[in-house]
Simulated assay, not measured.
Amino acid sequence: MMSKEISGINDTTTLSNGVEMPRLGLGVWQAEPKDAVNAVSSAIQMGYPMIDTAKAYGNEQQVGEGIKQGLAAAGKKRDDLFVTTKLANSDQGYESTLTNFDASLKRLGLDYVDLYLIHWPVAGKWAETWRAFEKIYQDGKARAIGVCNFSEQTMKSLIALSDITPMVDQVEFHPWLQQPSLKKYLADTGIQQEAWSPLGGTGGSLMKEPVIQTIAKKHGKSAAQVLIRWDLQNGLVTIPKSVHPEYIKQNADVYDFSLDDDDMKQLAAMEQSKRTSYWLTSFDWYFGDEK
């Protein structure tokens, strides 16, 4: 896993299998189906090289239509775009994974995805699910495979049982939740860390923090731009979500400034181990390190 110098929207990181993964993409979590088509199409036309969705988001079909429209309008080919989707928790298990992967491809209108992820480590299921992921990868239907929301311990357990090490771990990451031990482990293991909810989730309370507002004013940028740039300078892949074309454009305008050492230290000092997706706590019984 190797990230190159930060220079523009087409920057990539090299995954452990040699695949080039864009550093910046559009996330569509909580994007209503009616909004997803235009958001995805607009992002592609603005130069976004990556789109991230999931079956659980309920918008794969609309994302697929947005991809079709966006590529046509931009005069680009399928190979110019990196597409990620994820397996829903209720679909885990070996045969179920294979069946539901094909269903995702059909909804997206694609012959392959660039990255397929296990959405959560469902206790009692994730090991056999990963075996199916290895088959999908070996069959060439996904250029890379990985996981979401795996802790260091769960990742170690998975690697011990696997023939193929996950290439990506997509986790919640922002100044309030930095998980430094996990970040170091992933870097040391050659697994690319990807940030979901990089802007701190819904409500915008993180972006209202005085530290972030001060840094944004200093650079003449928005709070969102500061957070996205922070992800990039931390070596992460990041997928900020918006369905508004003006914000989609603004979120990609992060290559004409740099956060200095003092900025980076101030943002790092905001760590609180605070999740912004509070609903996750009600699922603690469901996810775990069991096979």
Score class of each variant (00 low, 15 high):
residue 291 K to T: 01
residue 136 I to A: 04
residue 60 E to V: 15
residue 267 L to H: 05
residue 62 Q to M: 15
residue 37 V to P: 05
residue 85 T to L: 07
residue 72 A to C: 06
residue 46 M to A: 10
residue 285 W to Y: 11
residue 197 S to M: 03
residue 179 Q to V: 05
residue 112 Y to N: 02
residue 262 D to M: 07
residue 237 V to M: 15
residue 170 Q to G: 05
residue 30 Q to L: 12
residue 47 G to A: 13
residue 139 D to F: 12
residue 167 M to F: 11
residue 230 W to L: 06
residue 7 S to V: 11
residue 9 I to Y: 06
residue 124 G to V: 03
residue 99 T to A: 12
residue 45 Q to P: 00
residue 49 P to H: 06
residue 260 D to L: 12
residue 39 A to P: 08
residue 51 I to T: 00
residue 115 L to Q: 07
residue 4 K to P: 06
residue 286 Y to H: 03
residue 219 H to Y: 12
residue 132 A to Q: 04
residue 230 W to K: 03
residue 57 Y to V: 11
residue 42 S to A: 14
residue 138 Q to W: 08
residue 22 P to T: 15
residue 115 L to H: 02
residue 220 G to V: 09
residue 100 N to Q: 07
residue 18 G to H: 06
residue 161 L to G: 03
residue 21 M to E: 03
residue 124 G to M: 08
residue 262 D to A: 14
residue 115 L to S: 04
residue 210 P to R: 09
residue 252 A to V: 11
residue 79 D to R: 13
residue 109 G to T: 02
residue 286 Y to A: 13
residue 225 Q to I: 13
residue 118 I to W: 05
residue 57 Y to A: 10
residue 122 V to C: 03
residue 45 Q to K: 12
residue 121 P to S: 04
residue 204 G to S: 09
residue 251 N to Y: 09
residue 171 V to H: 09
residue 175 P to W: 00
residue 76 K to H: 08
residue 44 I to K: 03
residue 111 D to C: 11
residue 102 D to F: 02
residue 101 F to P: 00
residue 8 G to A: 13
residue 189 T to R: 14
residue 2 M to Y: 11
residue 278 Y to G: 05
residue 161 L to C: 02
residue 291 K to V: 08
residue 94 Y to P: 01
residue 83 V to E: 04
residue 25 G to N: 02
residue 241 K to T: 01
residue 154 T to L: 08
residue 89 N to E: 13
residue 207 M to A: 01
residue 84 T to H: 04
residue 161 L to Y: 03
residue 216 A to V: 15
residue 93 G to K: 01
residue 80 D to M: 12
residue 135 K to W: 03
residue 204 G to V: 12
residue 201 G to D: 08
residue 95 E to D: 13
residue 28 V to G: 01
residue 92 Q to E: 14
residue 169 D to F: 02
residue 142 A to Q: 06
residue 15 L to Y: 07
residue 261 D to S: 15
residue 228 I to M: 00
residue 251 N to H: 08
residue 236 L to T: 09
residue 52 D to C: 03
residue 178 Q to M: 02
residue 199 L to V: 00
residue 51 I to F: 02
residue 97 T to V: 02
residue 185 Y to Q: 10
residue 173 F to H: 14
residue 80 D to A: 04
residue 60 E to Q: 11
residue 74 A to Y: 00
residue 106 K to P: 04
residue 126 W to N: 01
residue 64 G to I: 07
residue 106 K to Y: 04
residue 246 E to G: 00
residue 82 F to Y: 14
residue 249 K to P: 02
residue 30 Q to D: 11
residue 71 L to Y: 08
residue 121 P to Y: 11
residue 247 Y to N: 14
residue 226 V to A: 05
residue 2 M to I: 15
residue 164 I to M: 10
residue 147 V to S: 10
residue 194 E to W: 00
residue 104 S to G: 07
residue 8 G to L: 13
residue 142 A to K: 12
residue 221 K to Q: 00
residue 218 K to P: 14
residue 7 S to D: 12
residue 185 Y to L: 07
residue 230 W to Y: 14
residue 196 W to K: 02
residue 30 Q to I: 05
residue 89 N to D: 15
residue 255 Y to G: 04
residue 289 D to S: 15
residue 42 S to N: 08
residue 46 M to N: 04
residue 52 D to T: 09
residue 67 I to K: 05
residue 207 M to Q: 14
residue 254 V to E: 04
residue 243 V to E: 04
residue 20 E to Q: 15
